[in-house]
Design a protein around this nucleic acid. Structure first.
Length: 597
RNA sequence: GGUCCUGUAGAGCAGUCGGUUAGCUCGUCACCCUGUCAAGGUGAAGGUCGCGGGUUCAAGUCCCGUCAGGACCGCCA
């Protein structure tokens, strides 16, 4: 090793020792006759003192025109420091620093490599555009916050491995070059040189392979799997992302949830120092939607949605003559200016709603505002009690189709929580959302699977889901933390007849099913075990654990929102020769018959 | 595919009603400085105001287009 000690580990007990350190120049404080600088390595920082008269700074190569001696260090030079650890002079200790009791008096500072002036400050500045940060990611990773996030990610992966091994899971990889499936998200496609015109797809998830592993008798499988989806970005979405993928045989829902809970409990205990109360509460999808307007409710604050459909059943107000009327209360919102209330209308419109009707509860309990003018005296007088509003509050309404209205109110609820400072950012709120619907109607009037078509119905729906697809509930579950969907899964279908019934409902013919999933259906002919599993979004999970605001902050080399990578410049055009070799422009024979002339 | 926000020196930002030489902080460079830890002092360099077009006597500022970044809707089983 080039060094004898790590900078961040030095303490008073090391005083008098001669040490060799290596790292980066973090901050300099040059006083002419004496210079201090903080030497940073992976373990932390320690102050180095360099005297002007010791000619201690020199370049390793001895060339390059930089004069020997003098304090010619700049930020982020990579240096090797030889010197003696000593207690700092009385009064000069820095209690802010773990190493603040000591300093290293340099005998020699060797510049291992120089750094050009930085594109952004590595020390200090935090408000740096992400584009620049990602372009110079190697510098961004030197920053304390990013380095910490990545180390948390690493630690979490080790903990995951421990937990899963302890629970008897086998850790296996599944293919990255696989078969395109028309279901679900758009695939990333890979041309195949050996078979021009044919393409691999990168997996959206290892779903089908892990089910095959269950047929194969592995019984318990997990993997930290990279997944790929060619869809548009969000701050918590990347085109490639990582998930903890797991699957178990001979289990019911409770068994899978117990593994998920053990995993979360371990990660939060060891990394966040938080003891997750187990078992986690469970809430049905229907309850989550009606109370919180979301299938991933943030339970760190109240402000629940009131269902006013019955209250306004006989209303004369035409807007409220709808299949569903609901409301959510903004505490103290009654004092908002007209401009602020108008801004809510724009907010609602930006979400595709017509607007957000509101009423204001006066100090004397009177009801005013647009809705107040349009409802009857009786409706006005009971309103505050019906929505549990207090004087000075603002009540927002949504009326129309139940699902869309609840989602609007749910979004308004989150906005209220944020604007009114109701969310305790130090709190953790975990829950399972269970009993999702199996199907939803498509625009064409058919049905599509909400989770995926291999999801089993709840046991009580096993015999009747085909007759009543609109009401059928799936044995599917999501784990939610602080309003973020951390993961989800389901008990799978393992019987052919039931699988075919699901395909029938979603309009997938036997031939189509055979052509798309034939390998799975074939496998299910050979004694498939009952099985189920789940997947956690690893990036999102780490984001929450690290307290980061974007999954990009917990990914070493993320992509920008355009899908491009500012660091490497990918994606790039390829040469004509590459196109030819990859067979990109080849056309399948049946699509375009070979020309004869 | 759609909506919105942003784009000014290496970084972060200001720039009024369209009007003189586009400012501030940090960083960089030079010099001074022996106890700082966001060191301090003096001075200097550094700008195609994203790009293109338009309106105007005059555009960083107004209009149109375009590109890039970000947020959201659609999408993401």
């Amino acid at each position: 090793m080039i060094r004898t000690h790590e900078a961040g580990t030095l303490r008073g007990a090391h005083a008098g020792e001669r040490v060799v350190l290596a790292g980066w120049v973090a901050r300099r404080r040059d006083h002419g006759g004496v210079m201090f600088f903080d030497l940073r390595d992976a373990s932390g920082v320690v102050q180095v003192v360099s005297r002007g008269d010791d000619e201690s700074v020199h370049s390793a190569g001895g060339t390059g025109g930089r004069p020997p001696g003098g304090h010619s260090l700049r930020a982020e030079f990579c240096v090797k420091v030889t010197g003696e650890v000593r207690q700092r002079p009385a009064g000069n200790e820095n209690p802010e620093l773990p190493t603040g009791a000591v300093e290293v008096v340099a005998e020699a500072v060797e510049v291992l490599s120089e750094a050009e002036p930085l594109p952004f400050p590595v020390e200090g500045g935090t408000d740096i555009s992400e584009e620049v940060r990602i372009k110079y990611r190697y510098l961004d990773i030197r920053r304390e916050e990013m380095a910490r996030n990545l180390r948390i990610r690493s630690e979490a992966a080790y903990l995951l491995s421990d937990v899963m091994r302890e629970a008897g899971f086998v850790n296996l990889e599944t293919p990255y070059l696989t078969r395109s499936t028309p279901e679900g998200a758009r695939d990333f496609l890979v041309p195949v040189r050996l078979k021009p015109g044919s393409w691999y797809a990168l997996p959206q998830s290892p779903q089908l392979f892990k089910q095959l592993l269950m047929v194969g008798g592995m019984e318990r499988y997990y993997q930290l799997a990279r997944c790929f989806r060619d869809e548009d970005f969000r701050k918590d979405r990347q085109p490639e992302f990582t998930q903890i993928d797991l699957e178990m045989s001979f289990v019911s829902r409770d068994d899978v949830l117990a593994v998920g809970e053990a995993l979360v409990a371990t990660l939060w205990r060891e990394i966040a120092g938080y003891e997750v109360p187990l078992p986690l509460p469970r809430m049905t999808y229907a309850e989550a939607m009606s109370r919180f307007g979301s299938d991933k409710p943030d339970l760190r604050f109240g402000v629940e949605i009131s269902d006013l459909t019955a209250y306004f059943a006989n209303t004369g107000f035409r807007v409220f003559q709808a299949p569903y009327v609901g409301a959510v209360v903004m505490p103290g919102g009654g004092s908002q200016t007209r401009r602020e209330l108008d801004a809510w209308q724009d907010w609602a419109k930006s979400r595709g709603a017509r607007g957000l009707a509101y009423a204001l509860i006066g100090a004397d309990g009177s009801v005013s505002g647009p809705v107040g003018k349009n409802i009857s005296d009786a409706e006005r007088s009971g309103l505050a009690a019906a929505v549990n509003a207090s004087p000075g509050d603002c009540v927002f309404f949504a009326a129309g189709a139940a699902h869309a209205s609840q989602e609007l109110l749910g979004a308004a609820r989150l906005e209220i929580g944020a604007r009114c400072g109701l969310i305790d950012s130090t709190a953790w709120s975990f829950l399972w959302v269970v009993d999702f619907p199996m199907f939803e109607e498509t625009d064409e009037g058919g049905w599509t699977a909400i989770h995926h078509p291999f999801t089993s119905p709840l046991p009580e729906w096993a015999d009747k889901f085909a007759a009543e697809p609109g009401g059928a509930l799936a044995d599917a579950y999501d784990i939610v933390c602080n309003g973020t969907e951390l993961g989800g899964g389901s008990i799978r279908i393992h019987r052919q007849a039931m699988q075919q019934a699901v395909f029938d409902i979603i309009g997938l013919s036997a031939e189509e099913a055979q052509s798309q999933f034939g390998f799975l259906l074939d496998a299910f002919k050979y004694g498939p075990p009952p099985h189920g599993g789940m997947a956690f979004g690893w990036d999102r999970l780490i984001m929450l654990l690290a307290g980061a605001e974007s999954i990009r902050d917990v990914i070493a080399f993320p992509k920008a929102a355009s899908g491009a990578d500012p660091l490497t410049g990918a994606p790039t055009p390829i040469t004509a020769a590459q196109r030819k070799e990859a067979g990109i422009d080849a056309r399948p024979a049946q699509a375009t018959p070979p020309k004869t002339g």
